[in-house]
């Protein structure tokens, strides 16, 4: 099984609010001095890919798009976790591309990587949360598409996936090649690389492809039809009233409030 995993490098999404700021010039989050990590669900996607490789054999290639230099860390971590090969597409403009543009570049990169059975993405990038890159790749690569997948299984040559759905789960049979986006559950918690793996990963090669070299193919699309006008921090309005006393007093006060609100 040849698997490509798309990984985005983002500022740690769980940093406290005081470390969060928007750069008015780029209309994006300030990255300087903040720790960068692999976007949350992309790590789950990588874990799913590695588990599949452990079971049926094959190769896992990690693919990232972003400004080079900082891109190194995410891709090295992917190698340390067990990816066999790594490709980093260098985007000199930084971090401002929207999903439609990113999908074009990633499509060109995947074509250049060549053969694949599966492309795995995260279900959403932790920063911009568009949830579009996976489905757009599926269309561009003429592959099957399923999003919010938590489990993948190969049975008698058929790919079976479990999709998280509003009403529960869907069990789907999927034709290859396919692009799947992955969400987290208890079966795909990302493995922690051992020190030895981190050392070996340093010696594994990372191919760096300038983004400009990938144009001339699927990059020549239209300009994106959508433009980011601004990114604002909403004001918090709720003022919390603490209910005083011991548990009995707190609970008595709470139930009184619920009665006032006609909820009890």
């Amino acid at each position: 099984m040849e698997i490509i995993v798309c990984l985005k490098q983002v500022v740690d999404p769980e940093l406290p609010a005081r470390d969060f700021a928007i750069d008015p010039a780029t209309r994006r989050q300030v990255r300087e001095g903040r720790p960068l990590v692999i976007s949350t669900y992309d790590e789950n996607a990588l874990e799913v890919a590695l588990q599949l490789k452990d079971r049926v054999g094959g190769k896992v290639t990690a693919l990232t798009l972003g400004p080079q230099g900082v891109a190194g860390d995410a891709i090295r971590l992917a190698l340390a976790m067990g990816a066999d090969e790594a490709v980093a597409v260098d985007d000199p403009h930084g971090v401002g591309l929207l999903g439609v543009e990113k999908a074009r570049v990633l499509t060109a990169a995947i074509r250049r990587i060549g053969r694949f059975d599966l492309v795995l993405c995260g279900c959403e990038s932790a920063d911009w949360v568009e949830r579009v890159v996976g489905p757009l790749l599926a269309e561009a690569l003429a592959a099957a598409c399923v999003t919010f997948v938590s489990r993948i299984e190969l049975r008698n040559g058929a790919l079976l996936v479990r999709r998280m759905a509003d009403e529960g789960f869907h069990q789907l049979e999927v034709r290859l090649p396919a692009v799947l986006s992955v969400t987290s559950d208890e079966t795909n918690r990302p493995r922690l690389p051992k020190v030895k793996d981190i050392m070996t990963a340093r010696r594994k090669p990372v191919q760096v492809w300038p983004m400009a070299d990938l144009s001339g193919t699927s990059l020549d699309g239209d300009a994106p039809g959508v433009e980011v006008r601004d990114v604002a921090l909403p004001e918090r309005t709720a003022r919390c009233e603490f209910l005083p006393g011991d548990a009995a007093a707190q609970v008595a006060a709470l139930t009184q409030r619920l009665r006032d609100l006609k909820l009890l």
């Binding site: 969060f20 920063d127 911009w128 949360v129 039809g225 006008r229 604002a232 909403p234």
Partner: peptide, 23 residues
């Protein structure tokens, strides 16, 4: 057409202008 969406884990609200049609 102007739309808003949550970004950065709900910390911020992005305003997008939809320039082309169809959308």
């Amino acid at each position: 057409i102007v739309v808003r969406r949550q970004v950065y884990g709900g910390r911020a609200l992005a305003t997008l202008v939809v320039r082309t049609r169809p959308a």
